[in-house]
Write a protein that binds this DNA or RNA. Structure first.
Lengths: 232, 232
DNA sequence: CGTAGAATTGAACACTCTCAATTAGCGTGG
DNA sequence: CCACGCTAATTGAGAGTGTTCAATTCTACG
């Protein structure tokens, strides 16, 4: 199985660094934890541990503190489509309905903050700003999904990888170097390709001098403009 | 160009069949038009006419009355990904941000009801139920997009067409017969296939007796269970 | 009816996948 | 610190699914 979910030795750190008052509206969890008695707990997952399964009741909403998470759907025979990667700061697991539509697993050791969905819903009942924020977060996910449908339906392997590299560069580059937390298979399942095709395209880009490696997962983009032209 | 957008001879019928009070919460426009002085206008588009373009300011929210609409994104070279088809009753064009993320065109002559986004936003400010409904509608679109990513990234041509047929059967079958408003190219651009592949798969299903035709766009499913097994 | 666009069908091709072998990278323990 | 061993990643060769290009047939509509 793709989801061993081995270790349940997680630390519950009911630490809540609640920022005093009226936090920046850009950070939903700031908006949330700074509000109406909402409490955020921290929780840790080990590499490859499941956070929640597909169609499981959506009891919590999560915010990434450290680590990386994949959201995915499976077909009955094991084919997997990763819909999104979640990185520090990201909120995931937010549902308007009763259940999670995608399963999630930690890609590497991961710490999240979480709040009960109930309490969010209740807060949204009385605070229009929170209600609005919930909507906006779901709309952001939708925007990403719409872009990704275009990629999956119509882009070539080269274009998909270029898009992926630019996305990851934007989201996790430090000093123009990115340390990918996910393996080639994860990338392939995100891009609708096989891991071999991902590897081949990366090798090709390397040969063309568009990117450099320091180990398979440490990538530096040497020609972003070239990638942007490739991403169709 | 794929988007001729020829005729702008549209009729504006400021008719608003406002249902008296507190309408069923399942129909967003009922929820809306029955509320706080929100007015819905009717508007008609001709076949292939653009309703709004990608990245255009999102001034209105639309509800299908009659007809069919496609929402899509284009790559610079004209490759197109249709993200959704909108059929009578559906709401589309709802955005949390300032602009439309996909363009829309009428597939056939189409009538919509529309309300100003502004007025919706204002209504949501004071009415939590409306705010909640907006969120829920966006979440429904997200759910569809997530399912569709799985299709586009991981399903075979046969599985895609099977999924499509079951979706359309559910949404527009009358007396177990469906009249598809869209051409093979639209279907292909929805499923991430070419029109030829769509045609070939439909022919194959026809040969297998899974479906019957009365003209290329009138389809009757003769073996839904077989299709369900095929849709992976 | 006649016509133009839509749909079907065929044949060859291409991109990506599959299967397999090799190499590289990295965590673990001596 | 190095060697080991395991997993990840790369690379190759061949196959396959879906595409492309083209010709024909269908069918909606005027």
């Amino acid at each position: 199985m793709l989801n061993p979910s081995l270790n349940t030795l997680n630390t519950v750190v009911i630490g809540n660094k609640v920022p005093a008052r009226s936090p920046a509206a850009t950070d939903p969890f700031a908006l949330i934890t700074g509000h109406a008695g909402l409490v955020a707990s921290e929780f840790t997952y080990r590499k490859d541990e499941e956070i929640y399964g597909e169609d499981e009741p959506a009891e919590y909403v999560y915010q990434m503190v450290t680590g990386a998470v994949r959201s995915y759907k499976l077909l009955s025979d094991g084919r997997r489509q990763i819909g999104a990667f979640h990185l520090p700061g990201d909120v995931f697991g937010l549902e308007s309905g009763a259940t999670h539509r995608l399963a999630t697993e930690a890609i590497i050791d991961t710490t999240v903050r979480l709040v009960k969905r109930n309490s969010l819903e209740q807060a949204a009942e009385v605070d229009v700003q929170i209600a609005r924020k919930l909507w906006t977060m779901t709309a952001s996910e939708l925007r990403h999904a719409e872009d990704h449908m275009l990629l999956l339906g119509r882009k070539t392997a080269m274009e998909r990888v270029a898009t992926f590299l630019l996305e990851m560069d934007r989201r996790l580059a430090v000093a123009s170097m990115m340390a990918l937390p996910m393996c080639r298979r994860d990338i392939g399942d995100y891009l609708g390709l096989t891991l071999e095709t991902v590897s081949r395209v990366l090798s090709q880009l390397h040969a063309q001098g568009v990117l450099g490696f320091s180990g398979a997962r440490q990538i530096v983009l040497r020609n972003r403009q070239r990638l942007r032209n490739m991403d169709a």
